[in-house]
């Protein structure tokens, strides 16, 4: 690995530690201090500090996606797989308060909002495929609305700092009844 790549990895690792502890409430100087690098190092890799946060947010979203994929990959499609996917997704977000804080912080930033839209679209497509295989009416439309409801559940759980079983169960009961 080149020196440049090693330094970038140190910066992202430091930013991740800070995001886990402080959400989006840290700056370039704090990242440099945590990474034991001179403050100028951050600017050499990222012209805008928010671009560093965008890369970190993308990394955290990838972790969540990979976790959901890993757990559901070998299951047959149907309500069981959908329930596990939704529960895993929500729990992974709840376990990463820094992700929610970064998404809130970056939602009006051009690259940040684009990144969030892409990731929402990715989840939307996954849900659409599940609904399509269950012969759900208008699966693309239902997936879009249910993705909005799922994001709302994640927001509500993040605000509460805990699982909200009533919201999860309501959404899952809707899918289960429709797939029966």
């Amino acid at each position: 690995m080149s020196d440049v790549a090693i330094q970038k990895q140190k910066i992202l690792g430091a930013a991740r530690r800070l995001a886990d502890r402080r959400g989006a409430d840290f700056d370039a100087a704090a990242v440099a201090a945590d990474a034991q690098l001179p403050p100028s190092a951050i600017g050499r890799h990222y012209a805008d500090f928010n671009l560093l946060l965008c890369e970190l947010l993308a990394q955290m979203y990838d972790e969540v996606r990979d976790l959901v994929t890993k757990l559901t990959l070998n299951m047959p499609s149907g309500p069981g797989r959908l329930q596990l996917a939704l529960e895993t997704y929500l729990q992974a977000l709840l376990d990463r308060p820094g992700l929610r804080a970064l998404a809130r912080h970056l939602r009006f930033h051009p690259q940040g909002s684009q990144l969030i839209r892409q990731r929402v679209k990715g989840f939307n497509l996954m849900l659409q495929l599940e609904l399509k295989s269950a012969n759900w009416p208008d699966p693309a439309v239902a997936a879009r609305l249910c993705t909005a409801a799922l994001i709302e559940t994640a927001v509500a759980e993040s605000e509460a700092g805990r699982k909200l079983p009533a919201m999860r169960d309501t959404l899952i009961a809707y899918f289960t009844a429709g797939m029966a």
Partner: peptide
């Protein structure tokens, strides 16, 4: 819960 999901 249904109310919050529906509004979203």
């Amino acid at each position: 819960a249904l109310s919050r999901l529906y509004l979203a």
